[in-house]
Design a protein around this nucleic acid. Structure first.
Length: 795
DNA sequence: TTAGGGTTAG
């Protein structure tokens, strides 16, 4: 016996095995049908081999089994059309070869011509309906079975279960199962499979267990199904038990079972177990290799995936297929290996694997992760056969690359078509709402999500939480978090980050303690949230403590994001030397975002030399981070170095990056009001300016960076229009003060960082008006109250 | 002549 790596010596729970008590259950006997019961005059016996009809029959049988249906049809045309057997043969031929529509049409013609269908006919016909996903016709066929007296036939019922499983009509499948006289192994397997089809993995396992309890001995297909269910439940204990079962009933060297086991262990993130199974396979076919490549991709070992490809290519008996490439593409994305990715794309074309919806979606996905959205779009646009997953992948590609408007446009297009969004669609599109939508729109999409019943899904809830926090409603985000039935690590990371971006670092820390006390293990993203919280709230000592604890207590190596947070934290203290040496001592290559953080710190401290250094580095790195360029451009503008400003503008233009037109929005009960700098077109602008004047007078003339700079006369007019008194955020705040309920905070969102002057102004306004003013920029929310800001004047 | 088949995009 092959020892499958000795993986299942111990199992504490015997969920599946307990009922069987070591004695293999008796295999349910297939009830052999009495041949006479359904015989009818059209059936010809094989005995009359001398007749020409029989010779033709023989020829038809041979032709159909050879798969050339065109030839078969011409033979069929020459024959008498009164023989049910011949019709069955033809229908089977079409079904087996995937010509489901032909099969169904032939059946309908058969009925039209009055030829009686029998218990052989229906399994083929039902399979064709299933293949076509034609549930109207499927139900009609089901209806006619009662009249034919075939509704209790074992094979027909099993086919019905299979068909309803394909439709996802699980209730109908259950009904057929419950009403059939004697379900057999196939019936049970079909039920387990039906639940797999609708992704109800837990229920599927429950059926498997019930089957064992009913004394049905599983065959290899039962185990393959059960393993698939286990692989989705992320609970390898059950998987190991099925593994033991496989050993017990002697399937340990069946390559299909082994491949299923490999996949199950891989999906349970037990890569070494998967490898041991793979090593124990004596004859590895391409499917096993593909599964192993998929396992390496899933478990973050892209190099190993490519090594496996080498091995496949070396072996003459193995041929790369489309699944090989599909499984390999995520590894290219992980490695950032654009060239290899494109090579695989080329290979797919050369090998005529395209068009292929799964492969094309995998390519789209990869290009999205590379950030090469043009190629992702081309792939999407060229696809003949787009399914929901394709749409989801394109939406996710846009969102991951911050192309939110495009994402929303595509989402709308999806809604107007025949495809219905699923939880993945929703979880993918919500970040776009988080970035662009008003609170009212957020509530609308939230309502829509509730109507679809998707709000119970943890992924979706997490995204809703993030959306509300990003749009300024932290309280609602918190309520959603508290109301969640099932919180995962992402839920905790999200709520910690929510308080972080609102400058309430103490709350983040409190939530982190709560999370630990509930026994939830933090991961690297938890620390990104936590360190952001410390940085945004100026909790310098706490930040360092968590940074050290992350490595020492949790064994998590800091990634570039963590270094970024720490750099913001150091920058806040104004110790620029420490900031610079922190970058120099980092084991990772600094990104534009890292230098941007130093640039920001230098600018805040007024250290032009260091700012210049950071700027040079930002420009020398290839990146598409619009924010970094804008930061740089603003800094030069403040210093009056217009030639540098123009230079950056030209770089951005060359890269196709658009400078976002600064704008601020404020929401009233009825609509969203949008302001740009020096905008006078708004209905209430006269009133707004009046308020602005009152406030300006009240404030005296605060610090104004621009006033200290000498402008060229030609630029003076432009600069004046752009002077801080006219900045959109002030217009929005003033409008908010006069158009929202007294006592409510004024919530303003803007697409660029608030300037120093406006920050001073907002503090004053909050003091004078005695109202809380919340200004959200792409990174943080400033909560202004009684003349103070939650950011501690560093952002 | 009849049912179920391992790897496949997020």
């Amino acid at each position: 016996m092959v020892n499958m790596g000795g993986l299942c010596h111990h199992h504490h729970h015997t969920i599946f095995l307990s009922s069987t008590n070591n004695t293999p259950p008796i295999h349910h006997k297939r009830s052999k049908k009495p041949t006479t019961a359904f015989a009818h005059p059209h059936n010809h016996s094989r005995a009359s081999s001398s007749s020409s009809l029989s010779r033709l029959s023989r020829a038809l049988v041979d032709t159909v089994s050879s798969g050339s249906m065109q030839h078969a049809h011409s033979l069929f045309d020459k024959m008498s059309h009164s023989n049910t057997f011949h019709w069955n043969l033809m229908i089977r031929g079409y079904t087996d070869n995937g010509f489901f529509l032909h099969a169904l049409n032939l059946y309908l013609t058969m009925r039209f011509q009055g030829v009686p269908a029998d218990h052989f006919t229906y399994p083929f016909v039902l399979k064709a309906c299933g293949g076509l996903l034609d549930f109207r016709e499927g139900e009609k066929v089901h209806g006619s079975l009662f009249k034919m007296g075939l509704a209790e036939d074992l094979y027909v019922c099993n086919s019905l279960i299979g068909m309803y499983g394909k439709f996802g009509h699980i209730d109908s499948a259950v009904k057929v199962f419950e009403e059939m006289p004697l379900p057999d192994l196939v019936s049970w397997n079909s039920m387990v499979g039906a639940y797999l089809m609708v992704q109800q993995y837990f229920t599927s396992l429950k059926w498997f267990r019930t089957m064992l309890q009913a004394g049905i001995c599983p065959n290899k297909f039962s185990l393959i199904n059960a393993l698939e269910a286990c692989s989705h439940c992320f609970y390898n204990l059950w998987g190991r038990e099925v593994h033991c079962y496989a050993l017990k009933i002697g399937f340990e060297s069946d390559v299909m079972i082994q491949t299923s086991l490999l996949d199950m262990y891989s999906k349970c993130r037990l890569l070494s177990y998967a490898e041991r199974i793979f090593d124990s396979i004596s004859s590895r076919n391409i499917v096993a290799w593909n599964a192993m490549i998929g396992a390496y991709a899933l478990n973050g070992q892209p190099i190993q995936a490519f090594d496996s490809l080498e091995n496949i290519l070396k072996d003459d008996k193995l041929a790369v297929d489309n699944v090989t490439l599909i499984n390999l593409l995520p590894s290219c994305a992980q490695l950032g290996a654009v060239l290899q990715g494109k090579t695989i794309h080329g290979l797919a074309i050369r090998k005529s694997f395209l068009p292929h919806p799964v492969l094309e979606t995998a390519l789209l996905d990869m290009y999205g992760e590379f950030g090469i959205l043009k190629l992702a779009e081309v792939t999407f646009d060229q696809m003949m056969d787009k399914n929901l997953i394709t749409w989801n992948a394109m939406i996710a590609a846009y969102v991951q690359n911050d192309w939110y408007r495009k994402a929303l446009k595509l989402f709308e297009e999806l809604l107007s078509g025949y495809l219905k969004p699923d939880t993945v669609t929703i979880a993918s599109i919500l970040p776009a709402y988080a970035n662009l939508a008003s609170l009212r729109e957020c509530r609308q999409i939230h309502g829509y999500i509730m109507k679809l019943n998707f709000h119970l899904n943890t992924f979706v809830s997490n995204s809703i939480m993030y959306m509300y926090a990003s749009c300024g409603d932290l309280a609602l985000a918190c309520r959603i978090f508290r109301g969640m039935a099932c919180r995962d690590i992402i839920s905790w990371n999200t709520i910690i980050m929510a308080y972080a971006i609102h400058g309430m670092g103490r709350m983040s820390i409190e939530l982190f303690s709560e999370m630990k006390s509930r026994g939830i293990e933090p991961n690297d993203s938890t620390f990104v949230s936590l360190l952001s919280a410390c940085s945004n709230s100026g909790l310098v000592n706490e930040g360092w403590a968590y940074y050290n604890s992350m490595k020492l207590d949790y064994g998590i190596e800091p990634k570039i994001e963590h270094y970024g947070c720490m750099l913001d934290l150091i920058g806040r203290t104004g110790n620029l030397d420490q900031a610079l040496s922190f970058i120099e001592e980092m084991p990772l290559l600094p990104t534009a975002r890292i230098w941007g953080s130093l640039l920001n710190a230098s600018r805040n401290k007024g250290n032009i030399e260091l700012a210049e250094l950071a700027a040079e580095r930002i420009l020398s790195i290839k990146h598409d981070n619009t924010g970094c360029y804008i930061l740089l451009s603003n800094m030069y503008a403040e210093a009056g170095r217009w030639e540098k400003v123009e230079h950056i503008k030209s770089i951005m233009k060359k890269k196709g990056l658009e400078k976002t037109l600064p704008c601020s929005t404020v929401e009233t009960k009825f609509r969203l009001h949008r302001f740009t700098n020096k905008q006078r077109s708004h209905d209430e602008s006269a009133m707004v300016y009046e308020i602005l004047d009152i406030i300006s007078r009240n404030m005296g003339h605060g610090k104004c960076i621009h006033s200290a700079t000498k402008f060229k006369p030609s630029e003076l007019a432009r600069k004046k229009a752009n002077s801080p008194e006219n900045h959109s955020v002030r217009l929005a705040i003033c409008f908010g003060l006069i158009s929202t309920k007294l006592g409510d905070p004024v919530l303003v969102r803007k697409n660029t960082r608030i300037c120093e002057d406006c920050h001073v102004a907002a503090k004053r306004i909050s003091h004078i008006s005695k109202r809380e003013i919340i200004v959200g920029d792409p990174k943080v929310f400033h909560h202004f109250r009684d003349g103070y800001c939650s950011c501690g004047d560093y952002w």
